[in-house]
Nucleic acid binder design. Structure first.
Lengths: 216, 216
DNA sequence: GGCTTTACCGACAGGTTGTCGGTTAAGTTA
DNA sequence: TAACTTAACCGACAACCTGTCGGTAAAGCC
């Protein structure tokens, strides 16, 4: 039954990615705590030592996954912000939503992410996204201040507040009915306007458009 | 060396509290992940079976601790709110701060709480505090709306935003310099005023007073 | 073709949580 | 007060887990 241990050698980078792919998949399926390093090595078909040759610990694997998952969102956000011909409000909403990467493959991750087994994953993702995106949003708010679109006395803290709220509140979106989601989105837009001292409805429409597109 | 296993019988309630006391203490010292059930039973001097006679799992112990720790804060908040002769602004700040129970014995817990080992504890505390305190704050905002003090179109979501932000942002307070803390507090007050449509400085002073008192 | 580097292997130590049959104390009933 | 029931308690044990380590084999270099 047991396969003979055919020795297959790959480049470190290739093997690392393979491990991360499988680990991510497994964390989605069973949660971080429940997925064991044995699960990982069995599914790939490598030995225990191989795994620990590439990663020092299970937590380091998690860190690498978080890194990989967040990098894309943060890059996207920082690109969007630089498009100075796009209206600030649109850039702002796009940047905020860049972390809610609900698109494509990552969907299942976000379903599992709040389960208690994934508290650590959740915390690390949030931390990293906050560190990465808050400065970007902050810059945007400052730009809006100069343009006269916004009037925010504490851009950094406002950015923090927006990002923290959206990362926690939009986590639990899937449990809500469609009208609840709508209301939550409206409230979010309304509050951001207040927070940034923006004109009423200056953000409302563009935010609602994105939220509507989200669950089509 | 090994003590003879003198059999001591206690009432279920008494024993449960004993377990929670020691577990809480241990979680403070080593973090939730690092503190083992063996640590708990050894420190108390009971057998493995005894522990699992009273609690079904390690996580159930954690839940009970979270329950115990948050109950006090939530009770306090709901009491404060009922004092209708106290100005709303003071009640609001007091209720918000009721979760930052930095007073007395709980101090060390909050130092340890952000360490990765405690992600689960952190998440559960936050969840429970949010569920408990948000409705209370919401009621207060509605009251403020009626009095004309506030002007909030979405009281529930505003309460959520305030609580989520304060529970995340004030977590990492100990790493900051005193002036940073001050600025963060000022920004917080400013933003709450904006969020609730309150008059400028109507909350500022009372919030700053509390924050100043916090790290004396 | 020899040498060094590095990916790889799998047994193993030392830890973990949760289970379970059996034991003893406390309470209840007769 | 003696028999019986309930509930707290015990400790060995199974079934995991993570991380280590000496050794093997492929790849790259001289």
């Amino acid at each position: 039954m047991k396969e003979k241990s055919m020795r297959v050698v790959k480049s470190a980078q290739e093997r690392k990615n393979e491990i991360l792919d499988v680990a991510e998949q497994l964390f989605e399926e069973k949660g971080f705590d429940n997925a064991s390093t044995n699960d990982i090595i069995n599914r790939i078909g490598i030995a225990r030592g191989t795994l620990y040759h590439h990663f020092a610990s299970k937590e380091e694997i998690l860190d690498a996954i978080v890194e990989r998952m967040t990098k894309e969102g943060i890059c996207k956000a920082s690109l969007i912000v630089k498009e100075r011909n796009v209206p600030i409000c649109e850039r702002l909403t796009a940047a905020i939503m860049a972390l809610n990467i609900k698109e494509g493959a990552a969907t299942e991750v976000f379903d599992q992410i709040h389960r208690p087994q994934n508290a650590l994953l959740h915390q690390k993702m949030q931390e990293r996204l906050l560190d990465g995106v808050v400065p970007i949003i902050e810059g945007l708010i400052r730009e809006g201040n100069e343009t006269g679109l916004f009037d925010s006395r504490y851009p950094k803290e406002a950015a923090e507040m927006i990002m923290i709220y959206s990362s926690v509140a939009f986590d639990e979106l899937m449990n809500l009915s469609n009208e609840d989601i709508l209301k939550k989105g409206q409230a979010f837009a309304y509050h951001i306007e207040k927070l940034l001292g923006a004109k009423e409805n200056s953000l409302f429409d563009v935010i609602m458009k994105i939220i509507a597109g989200q669950n089509k």
